[in-house]
Design a protein around this nucleic acid. Structure first.
Lengths: 139, 139
DNA sequence: TACATAGTTGCACAATTACGCATATAATAT
DNA sequence: ATATTATATGCGTAATTGTGCAACTATGTA
């Protein structure tokens, strides 16, 4: 019973629901800093919320070097599958801002992976960090 | 967003999840005193939890004289339908006690409706209240 | 009218949970 | 080694939520 209750509890927080919604819409694992920028939530809180979702087995963790990617679980039971399908029915318009922001972050990935030192405010042109990223990208 | 969040919050409490589970399994509206007996939760708390579920539009209220019946909503959106389907996937064995208890209560309904003055401890034979019920039943 | 039963609700308190801050850990680059 | 970046976490606090108790409304019955 706790197993099911825990999933509902995990989804009964706005930030966590937005996290899962992002994963469903983008259908690709995202790293902590990408969530942080897209949701405009502090890094330590994103991290904490991800931990709760992971414990509820609503997301899976995948370490890649310095980054930790979180995505939907690969093996889902019927219960979890239906919950995810339900979340997919939430109108995109309600969370369009999150989708816009994550798209900005995903646009600067290199080889499908997150880059270092990228903050939203750095996405402006002629910014030193963006220049660095651009350089990385050209490699 | 709040609309969806509210449904998850409503389901993130054990008593409330058990209430909805009962309604799904029995597929018929139940009254407050029936929930009270089946779940062994105080009547005022059952009432409060039902109010929360009703506000989240996960259940519907129906007054019949002195009794208030609560059942699954008639018109459900896709989101709610999928959530309910998910709950239906929770193994019956986990909540078999609730199902046993509600069956005892449902067994003494008259014309499909709840009777007055029935408490679980009164279901024993030769009890004055049960005798009264039995009399009622024969009418 | 008086009474009994079904259900609701205000209040105080306890438990839970989310957050900000500071700091710690882990991996990589210089 | 040292610095930098990504992520995690302990602590204190504020907000939220669940509960017991008692009082209340509402409906039906003697």
């Amino acid at each position: 019973m706790l197993e099911y209750l825990e999933k509902f509890k995990a989804l009964s927080d706005e930030t966590r629901l937005r996290i899962v919604h992002l994963l469903i819409e983008k259908n690709t694992p995202l790293c902590v800093c990408e969530f942080t920028d897209a949701l405009e939530v502090s890094q330590y809180n994103v991290s904490r919320h991800l931990k709760i979702l992971k414990h509820a087995k609503l997301i899976e963790e995948n370490k890649e070097g310095r980054w930790v990617y979180f995505g939907l679980p690969k093996t889902e039971d019927a219960f979890t599958e239906l919950i995810i399908e339900a979340i997919r029915r939430i109108p995109k318009s309600i969370l369009s801002k999150d989708l816009e922001e994550i798209d900005k972050r995903l646009a600067i990935r290199t080889n499908g992976k997150c880059l270092t030192g990228v903050k939203k405010e750095h996405l402006l042109s002629t910014h030193p960090v963006k220049d660095k990223i651009t350089k990385e990208f050209k490699k």
